[in-house]
Amino acid sequence: MNSALRFAAPLVLASLVLSLAACKPEDKDGKADAKTDVAADTAAKTDADNAPLVEGIKGLDTERAQVSYMIGMDMAKSLTPVKDQIDVDVLAEAMAAVFAGETPKINEEQSVQIQQAFTAKMQAKQAAEAEAEAKRMAEQGEKNKTEGPAFLAENKGKPGVQTTASGLQYQVVRAGNGPKPSKDDVVKVQYRGTLLDGTEFDSSYARNQPAEFGLNQVIPGWSEGVALMPVGSKYTFWIPAELGYGESGGGPIPPNATLKFEVELIEIVK
């Protein structure tokens, strides 16, 4: 987050402009702006203008209510990274003051000072969190250097586990009778990937949607392993770090991680 107070996404800002355009601002004497009066009177001529934009939304049965709620949702999504620093009641108070044309409690100079101080605080917090995470990942990487090879050394002696020349280990869960893909093919698969401690980091099963991969675009352990499978098969793979994400890791996968994959080969995509 380069500026912690740059909260609103473009859609939020556009929505707010539309919302403000539909409002009826008043001056300090309580008199509505003449141009706004004309627009409001024109809009009031038909009941259709108060009809909901989308039917069947409980509790939001007018256009204004639906637009307001939509803007609120967009703002909340934009503000989520700093939600713990926000008092919703004070936020609503500030918006109401601005909409009403009142003098806000914070002037422009103070607003800039608060923004700068808050941005610096958030950046320092993010830097500390990043440093702590880097330290944790480095420690995990050192641990994986020992635990991964030890696991594979024990695992290769288990019934049904086979080890290739590269060090990839696999077990046939269900044998298929279709063709085997080449390393340049695109395949459709269902799969589940976990760390050795059982932590799931990816799963097409969880998405209820098979995935398609080019075998020349995935980690070497996947490319080699799936090429061993006839269509219709289900295999379990144990992939050494050097055939996976290596010393750097990637995303939720820590450095030097040995990976376990359950893979079903559905078809070779033509």
Rank of each mutant, 00 (worst) to 15 (best):
P210R: 05
A227T: 12
F237Q: 07
W238P: 05
V226K: 12
K234G: 06
G225C: 12
V231Y: 04
Y235M: 04
V218L: 01
V231W: 00
S203G: 01
F237P: 10
V226H: 05
N208P: 00
N216W: 00
P230L: 09
F237L: 15
T199P: 10
W222K: 01
D197N: 15
Q209E: 13
T236E: 15
E224Q: 09
I239W: 09
T199V: 12
S223L: 10
G221H: 08
Y235K: 09
P220G: 04
V226D: 01
W222S: 02
T236S: 14
A227H: 02
W238H: 12
R207K: 13
N216T: 00
T236N: 13
E200N: 08
E224D: 01
W238M: 14
E212P: 04
W222G: 00
P220F: 02
M229I: 05
T236L: 08
Y205K: 08
P230N: 08
T236W: 10
G221L: 09
P230T: 04
L215P: 08
L215D: 07
Y235Q: 04
L215F: 04
E212S: 14
A227M: 03
P220D: 11
E224C: 02
D197P: 06
Y235R: 05
Q217N: 13
A227Q: 11
V218F: 01
K234A: 15
S233E: 10
Q217W: 01
Y205D: 06
S223Q: 07
Y235S: 13
P220L: 02
E224N: 04
G232D: 06
F237Y: 15
Y205R: 04
Y235T: 03
W238C: 05
R207W: 04
D202H: 01
W222I: 09
G232I: 06
A211F: 08
Y205A: 06
G214W: 12
E212V: 03
R207H: 08
P220R: 12
S203C: 06
K234L: 11
S223Y: 04
Y235G: 12
I219C: 11
Y235W: 12
V218H: 01
D202N: 10
D202S: 15
P210V: 08
G225H: 03
M229H: 14
T236F: 04
L228I: 11
Q209K: 13
K234H: 13
A227E: 05
E224F: 07
S203P: 05
F213H: 05
I239L: 01
F213Q: 04
G214S: 10
A211T: 10
K234T: 15
F237E: 05
T236V: 15
F213W: 12
G198H: 14
V218C: 08
N216V: 00
E200W: 14
V218M: 03
Q209V: 01
I239Y: 01
S223M: 05
M229K: 11
P220A: 13
T199R: 09
E200F: 06
T236A: 15
W222T: 10
V231L: 03
V218T: 07
Q217H: 07
W222H: 04
M229W: 13
G225M: 12
A211I: 11
Q209Y: 00
W238F: 15
D202W: 05
G225Q: 14
Q217L: 08
Q209N: 15
K234W: 02
P210A: 03
E212L: 02
V226S: 01
S233M: 10
V226E: 06
N216I: 02
E200V: 15
M229L: 09
N216F: 02
I239F: 07
I219M: 14
